[in-house]
Amino acid sequence: MSLIGERGVRRILAVTAFSAISALLLIALFILNEGLPFIFRYGLHDFLLKSDWDPQAGKFGIYPMVAASLWVTFGAMVVGAPLGVAGAIFLSEFVPKSVMRVIKPTIELLAAIPSVVYGFIGVMVLAPLIRTQLGGPGLSLLAASIILGIMILPTVISISIDSIQAVPQSYREGSLALGATTWQTIHMVTVRAAKSGIIASIILGMGRAIGETMAVIMVAGNAVKIPHSALDSVRSLTANIALEMSYATGLHRQALFATGVILFVVIIILNSFAIVVLRKRVYKK
Protein backbone atom coordinates (compact mmCIF):
# COMPACT_ATOMS: atom_id res chain seq x y z
CA MET A 1 0.00 0.00 0.00
CA SER A 2 2.99 2.31 0.36
CA LEU A 3 2.85 2.61 -3.41
CA ILE A 4 -0.45 4.39 -3.16
CA GLY A 5 0.33 6.46 -0.13
CA GLU A 6 -1.77 7.65 2.74
CA ARG A 7 -3.74 10.12 0.68
CA GLY A 8 -4.38 7.59 -2.06
CA VAL A 9 -5.80 5.12 0.43
CA ARG A 10 -8.10 7.77 1.79
CA ARG A 11 -9.29 8.59 -1.72
CA ILE A 12 -9.94 4.93 -2.60
CA LEU A 13 -11.83 4.36 0.61
CA ALA A 14 -13.84 7.55 0.06
CA VAL A 15 -14.90 6.32 -3.37
CA THR A 16 -15.87 2.84 -2.21
CA ALA A 17 -17.79 4.39 0.66
CA PHE A 18 -20.34 5.50 -1.91
CA SER A 19 -20.92 1.91 -3.11
CA ALA A 20 -23.99 1.31 -0.98
CA ILE A 21 -25.63 4.62 -1.74
CA SER A 22 -24.89 4.21 -5.44
CA ALA A 23 -26.42 0.76 -5.35
CA LEU A 24 -29.50 2.21 -3.70
CA LEU A 25 -29.79 4.97 -6.29
CA LEU A 26 -29.31 2.55 -9.15
CA ILE A 27 -32.04 0.31 -7.78
CA ALA A 28 -34.35 3.28 -7.21
CA LEU A 29 -33.72 4.53 -10.74
CA PHE A 30 -34.52 1.25 -12.44
CA ILE A 31 -37.55 0.33 -10.35
CA LEU A 32 -39.04 3.82 -10.63
CA ASN A 33 -38.37 3.88 -14.34
CA GLU A 34 -40.39 0.68 -14.81
CA GLY A 35 -43.18 1.44 -12.36
CA LEU A 36 -43.79 5.19 -12.26
CA PRO A 37 -45.24 5.56 -15.79
CA PHE A 38 -47.99 3.13 -14.80
CA ILE A 39 -48.75 5.01 -11.59
CA PHE A 40 -49.06 8.30 -13.46
CA ARG A 41 -51.30 6.70 -16.04
CA TYR A 42 -53.56 4.85 -13.62
CA GLY A 43 -53.53 7.45 -10.86
CA LEU A 44 -51.80 7.04 -7.51
CA HIS A 45 -55.06 7.44 -5.63
CA ASP A 46 -56.86 4.64 -7.48
CA PHE A 47 -53.80 2.40 -7.44
CA LEU A 48 -53.25 2.71 -3.69
CA LEU A 49 -56.77 3.03 -2.34
CA LYS A 50 -59.02 0.90 -4.56
CA SER A 51 -59.39 -2.61 -3.30
CA ASP A 52 -60.16 -4.35 -6.61
CA TRP A 53 -57.25 -6.28 -8.08
CA ASP A 54 -58.35 -7.91 -11.31
CA PRO A 55 -55.60 -7.50 -13.91
CA GLN A 56 -57.59 -9.30 -16.65
CA ALA A 57 -60.34 -6.70 -16.26
CA GLY A 58 -57.89 -3.81 -16.05
CA LYS A 59 -58.49 -3.20 -12.35
CA PHE A 60 -55.32 -2.55 -10.38
CA GLY A 61 -56.12 -1.51 -6.81
CA ILE A 62 -53.50 -2.68 -4.31
CA TYR A 63 -55.00 -1.43 -1.06
CA PRO A 64 -55.53 -4.99 0.28
CA MET A 65 -51.86 -5.80 -0.30
CA VAL A 66 -50.67 -2.61 1.38
CA ALA A 67 -52.82 -3.37 4.43
CA ALA A 68 -51.65 -6.99 4.46
CA SER A 69 -47.98 -6.07 4.29
CA LEU A 70 -48.29 -3.66 7.20
CA TRP A 71 -50.24 -6.14 9.33
CA VAL A 72 -47.89 -9.02 8.62
CA THR A 73 -44.85 -6.92 9.50
CA PHE A 74 -46.51 -5.62 12.64
CA GLY A 75 -47.40 -9.18 13.66
CA ALA A 76 -43.87 -10.38 13.06
CA MET A 77 -42.52 -7.56 15.23
CA VAL A 78 -44.94 -8.44 18.03
CA VAL A 79 -43.75 -12.04 17.92
CA GLY A 80 -40.06 -11.59 17.15
CA ALA A 81 -38.79 -8.37 18.72
CA PRO A 82 -39.58 -8.99 22.42
CA LEU A 83 -38.43 -12.61 22.22
CA GLY A 84 -35.26 -11.66 20.42
CA VAL A 85 -34.24 -8.80 22.67
CA ALA A 86 -35.12 -10.77 25.82
CA GLY A 87 -33.05 -13.66 24.53
CA ALA A 88 -30.11 -11.40 23.75
CA ILE A 89 -30.16 -9.82 27.20
CA PHE A 90 -30.44 -13.16 28.95
CA LEU A 91 -27.71 -14.78 26.90
CA SER A 92 -25.24 -11.94 27.32
CA GLU A 93 -25.90 -11.07 30.97
CA PHE A 94 -27.06 -14.23 32.74
CA VAL A 95 -25.39 -17.05 30.90
CA PRO A 96 -21.72 -17.99 31.40
CA LYS A 97 -19.42 -16.83 28.60
CA SER A 98 -18.46 -20.39 27.72
CA VAL A 99 -22.08 -21.36 27.07
CA MET A 100 -22.62 -18.17 25.09
CA ARG A 101 -19.72 -19.06 22.86
CA VAL A 102 -21.65 -22.12 21.73
CA ILE A 103 -25.14 -20.67 21.61
CA LYS A 104 -24.44 -17.49 19.66
CA PRO A 105 -22.88 -19.24 16.64
CA THR A 106 -25.77 -21.68 16.69
CA ILE A 107 -28.23 -18.82 16.52
CA GLU A 108 -26.26 -17.11 13.77
CA LEU A 109 -26.41 -20.36 11.87
CA LEU A 110 -30.18 -20.12 11.98
CA ALA A 111 -30.09 -16.85 10.08
CA ALA A 112 -28.75 -18.89 7.21
CA ILE A 113 -31.61 -21.37 7.10
CA PRO A 114 -33.38 -20.49 3.87
CA SER A 115 -36.63 -18.64 4.33
CA VAL A 116 -38.31 -21.30 2.21
CA VAL A 117 -37.55 -23.89 4.89
CA TYR A 118 -39.32 -21.75 7.47
CA GLY A 119 -42.16 -21.32 5.00
CA PHE A 120 -42.39 -25.04 4.40
CA ILE A 121 -42.53 -25.78 8.13
CA GLY A 122 -45.23 -23.12 8.35
CA VAL A 123 -47.25 -25.01 5.74
CA MET A 124 -46.67 -28.46 7.19
CA VAL A 125 -46.88 -27.74 10.94
CA LEU A 126 -48.30 -24.32 11.75
CA ALA A 127 -51.10 -23.92 9.19
CA PRO A 128 -52.84 -27.24 10.03
CA LEU A 129 -52.56 -26.35 13.72
CA ILE A 130 -54.22 -22.98 13.19
CA ARG A 131 -56.90 -24.49 10.94
CA THR A 132 -57.91 -27.18 13.42
CA GLN A 133 -57.50 -25.15 16.63
CA LEU A 134 -58.63 -21.67 15.61
CA GLY A 135 -60.49 -22.11 12.31
CA GLY A 136 -60.16 -20.41 8.94
CA PRO A 137 -58.05 -21.78 6.11
CA GLY A 138 -54.91 -21.99 8.25
CA LEU A 139 -52.81 -20.27 5.62
CA SER A 140 -53.30 -16.86 7.19
CA LEU A 141 -52.07 -13.55 8.52
CA LEU A 142 -51.42 -15.23 11.87
CA ALA A 143 -49.34 -18.03 10.34
CA ALA A 144 -47.32 -15.50 8.33
CA SER A 145 -46.73 -13.32 11.40
CA ILE A 146 -45.50 -16.22 13.52
CA ILE A 147 -43.22 -17.62 10.83
CA LEU A 148 -41.76 -14.19 10.06
CA GLY A 149 -41.41 -13.47 13.78
CA ILE A 150 -39.34 -16.64 14.13
CA MET A 151 -37.35 -15.82 11.02
CA ILE A 152 -36.18 -12.47 12.35
CA LEU A 153 -35.08 -13.90 15.73
CA PRO A 154 -31.49 -14.73 14.70
CA THR A 155 -30.98 -11.25 13.25
CA VAL A 156 -32.36 -9.52 16.34
CA ILE A 157 -30.56 -11.75 18.85
CA SER A 158 -27.18 -11.83 17.15
CA ILE A 159 -26.83 -8.09 16.62
CA SER A 160 -28.32 -7.20 20.02
CA ILE A 161 -25.83 -9.49 21.74
CA ASP A 162 -22.96 -7.85 19.90
CA SER A 163 -24.03 -4.41 21.01
CA ILE A 164 -24.75 -5.45 24.63
CA GLN A 165 -21.35 -7.06 24.87
CA ALA A 166 -19.73 -3.95 23.46
CA VAL A 167 -20.86 -1.99 26.54
CA PRO A 168 -17.71 -1.50 28.63
CA GLN A 169 -17.55 -3.74 31.71
CA SER A 170 -16.77 -0.66 33.84
CA TYR A 171 -20.34 0.64 33.32
CA ARG A 172 -21.76 -2.50 34.88
CA GLU A 173 -19.20 -2.52 37.69
CA GLY A 174 -19.98 1.09 38.48
CA SER A 175 -23.67 0.41 38.70
CA LEU A 176 -23.25 -2.74 40.77
CA ALA A 177 -20.86 -0.93 43.11
CA LEU A 178 -23.59 1.64 43.73
CA GLY A 179 -25.77 -1.19 45.06
CA ALA A 180 -27.98 -1.84 42.03
CA THR A 181 -29.19 -5.40 41.38
CA THR A 182 -28.16 -7.16 38.16
CA TRP A 183 -31.57 -6.45 36.63
CA GLN A 184 -31.43 -2.77 37.62
CA THR A 185 -27.98 -2.56 36.07
CA ILE A 186 -29.24 -4.20 32.90
CA HIS A 187 -32.25 -2.07 32.26
CA MET A 188 -30.88 1.21 33.59
CA VAL A 189 -27.32 0.99 32.34
CA THR A 190 -26.45 -1.81 29.95
CA VAL A 191 -29.52 -1.82 27.71
CA ARG A 192 -29.50 1.98 27.59
CA ALA A 193 -25.88 2.02 26.52
CA ALA A 194 -26.52 -0.67 23.93
CA LYS A 195 -29.74 0.94 22.70
CA SER A 196 -28.56 1.97 19.26
CA GLY A 197 -27.42 -1.56 18.48
CA ILE A 198 -30.63 -3.12 19.77
CA ILE A 199 -32.79 -0.76 17.75
CA ALA A 200 -30.61 -1.39 14.73
CA SER A 201 -31.19 -5.11 15.16
CA ILE A 202 -34.95 -4.56 15.21
CA ILE A 203 -34.80 -2.39 12.11
CA LEU A 204 -32.86 -5.06 10.29
CA GLY A 205 -35.38 -7.63 11.46
CA MET A 206 -38.23 -5.46 10.27
CA GLY A 207 -36.57 -5.13 6.90
CA ARG A 208 -36.36 -8.88 6.66
CA ALA A 209 -40.02 -9.31 7.64
CA ILE A 210 -41.55 -6.80 5.25
CA GLY A 211 -39.29 -7.93 2.45
CA GLU A 212 -39.76 -11.65 2.85
CA THR A 213 -41.45 -13.09 -0.19
CA MET A 214 -41.25 -16.84 -0.57
CA ALA A 215 -42.13 -17.79 3.01
CA VAL A 216 -45.09 -15.42 2.90
CA ILE A 217 -46.32 -16.82 -0.40
CA MET A 218 -46.18 -20.25 1.17
CA VAL A 219 -48.00 -19.53 4.45
CA ALA A 220 -50.26 -16.51 3.87
CA GLY A 221 -52.61 -18.08 1.31
CA ASN A 222 -52.43 -15.03 -1.00
CA ALA A 223 -56.12 -14.08 -1.09
CA VAL A 224 -56.61 -10.53 -2.38
CA LYS A 225 -58.58 -9.25 0.54
CA ILE A 226 -58.41 -6.70 3.34
CA PRO A 227 -57.93 -8.81 6.48
CA HIS A 228 -60.69 -8.64 9.08
CA SER A 229 -59.06 -11.02 11.50
CA ALA A 230 -55.71 -12.68 12.04
CA LEU A 231 -57.18 -15.90 10.63
CA ASP A 232 -57.89 -14.40 7.20
CA SER A 233 -55.70 -15.24 4.26
CA VAL A 234 -53.78 -12.25 2.96
CA ARG A 235 -51.43 -11.33 0.14
CA SER A 236 -48.46 -9.09 0.84
CA LEU A 237 -47.03 -6.62 -1.67
CA THR A 238 -44.01 -8.87 -2.12
CA ALA A 239 -46.18 -11.92 -2.75
CA ASN A 240 -48.23 -10.00 -5.29
CA ILE A 241 -45.12 -9.31 -7.35
CA ALA A 242 -43.61 -12.78 -7.18
CA LEU A 243 -46.87 -14.67 -7.76
CA GLU A 244 -47.90 -12.91 -10.91
CA MET A 245 -44.62 -11.67 -12.37
CA SER A 246 -43.86 -14.75 -14.42
CA TYR A 247 -47.22 -14.64 -16.19
CA ALA A 248 -47.64 -10.93 -16.54
CA THR A 249 -47.39 -8.97 -19.76
CA GLY A 250 -48.17 -5.41 -20.79
CA LEU A 251 -50.12 -3.30 -18.33
CA HIS A 252 -50.25 -6.13 -15.78
CA ARG A 253 -46.47 -6.35 -15.71
CA GLN A 254 -46.15 -2.59 -15.34
CA ALA A 255 -48.63 -2.72 -12.46
CA LEU A 256 -46.41 -5.27 -10.71
CA PHE A 257 -43.38 -3.04 -11.08
CA ALA A 258 -45.55 -0.22 -9.74
CA THR A 259 -46.29 -2.47 -6.75
CA GLY A 260 -42.51 -2.68 -6.38
CA VAL A 261 -42.33 1.12 -6.40
CA ILE A 262 -44.89 1.32 -3.58
CA LEU A 263 -43.01 -1.31 -1.59
CA PHE A 264 -39.80 0.60 -2.17
CA VAL A 265 -41.33 3.88 -1.00
CA VAL A 266 -42.95 2.26 2.07
CA ILE A 267 -39.59 0.79 3.03
CA ILE A 268 -37.77 4.09 2.59
CA ILE A 269 -40.39 5.87 4.74
CA LEU A 270 -40.26 3.19 7.46
CA ASN A 271 -36.47 3.21 7.47
CA SER A 272 -36.23 6.99 7.59
CA PHE A 273 -38.64 7.02 10.49
CA ALA A 274 -36.65 4.37 12.35
CA ILE A 275 -33.38 6.12 11.65
CA VAL A 276 -34.73 9.45 12.92
CA VAL A 277 -35.94 7.79 16.15
CA LEU A 278 -32.55 6.15 16.53
CA ARG A 279 -30.74 9.49 16.09
CA LYS A 280 -32.96 11.34 18.56
CA ARG A 281 -32.31 8.84 21.31
CA VAL A 282 -28.61 8.93 20.71
CA TYR A 283 -28.62 12.70 21.09
CA LYS A 284 -30.67 12.59 24.30
CA LYS A 285 -27.97 10.49 25.89
Binding site: A20, M206, G211, T213, G260, N271, I275
Partner: peptide, 12 residues
Protein backbone atom coordinates in the same frame (compact mmCIF):
# COMPACT_ATOMS: atom_id res chain seq x y z
CA UNK B 1 -28.27 4.94 2.23
CA UNK B 2 -26.76 1.84 3.80
CA UNK B 3 -29.62 1.47 6.26
CA UNK B 4 -32.14 1.90 3.48
CA UNK B 5 -30.39 -0.64 1.30
CA UNK B 6 -30.47 -3.08 4.21
CA UNK B 7 -34.23 -2.75 4.36
CA UNK B 8 -34.87 -3.24 0.65
CA UNK B 9 -36.82 -6.48 0.19
CA UNK B 10 -35.10 -9.25 -1.70
CA UNK B 11 -37.92 -9.27 -4.24
CA UNK B 12 -36.99 -5.68 -5.15
Amino acid sequence: GTDCLAGIPSII
